[in-house]
Design a protein around this nucleic acid. Sequence first.
DNA 1: CTGCGAAGTTGCGTTATTTGCAACTGCCGT
DNA 2: ACGGCAGTTGCAAATAACGCAACTTCGCAG
Lengths: 247, 247
Amino acid sequence: MSQTVTRALRLLAELGEGERSLDQLAEALGVHKTTVLRLLQSLEEGRFVHRDANYRYHLGAGLFALSSLALEQRGIRRTAAPHLAELNAATGQTVHLAAYEGGEVVYIDKYDSRQPVRMYSRIGLRASLHCTAVAKVLLADLPPAGRRKVAAGIEYTPHTANTITGPKELLAELEQVAAQGWAQDHAEHEAFINCVAAPVRDASGRVVAAVSISVPDVVLPYEQVLELLPQLLATARAVSADAGATA
Amino acid sequence: MSQTVTRALRLLAELGEGERSLDQLAEALGVHKTTVLRLLQSLEEGRFVHRDANYRYHLGAGLFALSSLALEQRGIRRTAAPHLAELNAATGQTVHLAAYEGGEVVYIDKYDSRQPVRMYSRIGLRASLHCTAVAKVLLADLPPAGRRKVAAGIEYTPHTANTITGPKELLAELEQVAAQGWAQDHAEHEAFINCVAAPVRDASGRVVAAVSISVPDVVLPYEQVLELLPQLLATARAVSADAGATA
DNA sequence: CTGCGAAGTTGCGTTATTTGCAACTGCCGT
DNA sequence: ACGGCAGTTGCAAATAACGCAACTTCGCAG
């Protein structure tokens, strides 16, 4: 494993927090500033970092370009985009697209609510496996053995009074999600937010992504969030159809 | 300058093109696969790359997370977002937000057209300085000396018959843009696309970003794109106001 | 205008890190 | 069961990274 690369990534992470000077970065990594300088020079060459007129380092456009390139390459994101935008426009609520990969559930797209309330979620972040609607939808499609394995490996951090606290409950919930074809998060992650999510399937019938609507209950109470289900399911079906699913 | 970091970035760039196997990556970099493996392990630890079940490497969620974090930190992007979404919804056309930094103009946000025609532009990419409306708007705010310096340093690659071909014409155009408060790209970059752009100013009165609308002329002819100007200017003014500009 | 201090940069010797090789392992298709 | 392909590991050689210390540059204060 490469120490140099690890340090470079730590630099990027540090810059993700905000602009930094050379000395601040050297301090943060605990290495000599010469070392940091040379790492930064390479990163700058690749446009991953950018130095402004005041010798402050920022994350650079090369990073954004690479990220959006990679996101666009995900077929499912592209096919989902227009439908998600429409759902977002129709409901006015926050819409997420998430996928399961390598044991984690990651947000791969997000359309913000028109409400001023902002959610703590972002493209690229991991969704908690035991207390989000998207994760339930994605896990519910795993074969039983896979579900059990994942369920056993989760740390059941309780976020609210409703958070699922153990593998047994989670597996039961997944069973239900698989049966009904959608999932909910009734204030399980954030006390004041409810979500509903539905699966997107490809031609093989496997679930390749999950679409969700998240609503703070100051905006809509739980019951009214459930009333959005038909629109959500229609969107998920439309995306599935565009992704080649037959049913 | 760090060879290791440079190689790691080349790996990421390669993966930006699509998924790759270990051997393909070693081939592409011209180094031993052991070397690539260890770089990848570090990148994987930082969630910048991800290896799927078939031992194919992809760009990972850590990259997306970092990128969207950094983009959200740009105040101007956040303040502009609702206005751009509205402009996009009202016109149905592609809307861009771009900023000038370190001698280049970079797209920092994009709202896709509702037409099926897709534009070749992406967040993080550089806009050509001599043939895009956003660049003209941003360059027009530089002090005269700065304009001349930039104008002299550009390679005037002609893209269409309308492309500006030299510093003299560009400086004259910038003069006009500064005077009229908006810029256009009348099929200067792509033969079938017209754009208009307007400046966003902050409290100091400096131009900190540019908003643009881009329309393929199969959708709207040039004259009708100009009719979108009032909406564009209103959006730019609204963003400026939210950014603290007084006038 | 001059001097001081803070912050970034460069040259260089040392050495830790990385590198490539070769051999090993595990998997897939025949 | 076998052969080949792709990824992984141990090891010795040497390159590339490291930290130091001295140098430069810039901004500010006297």
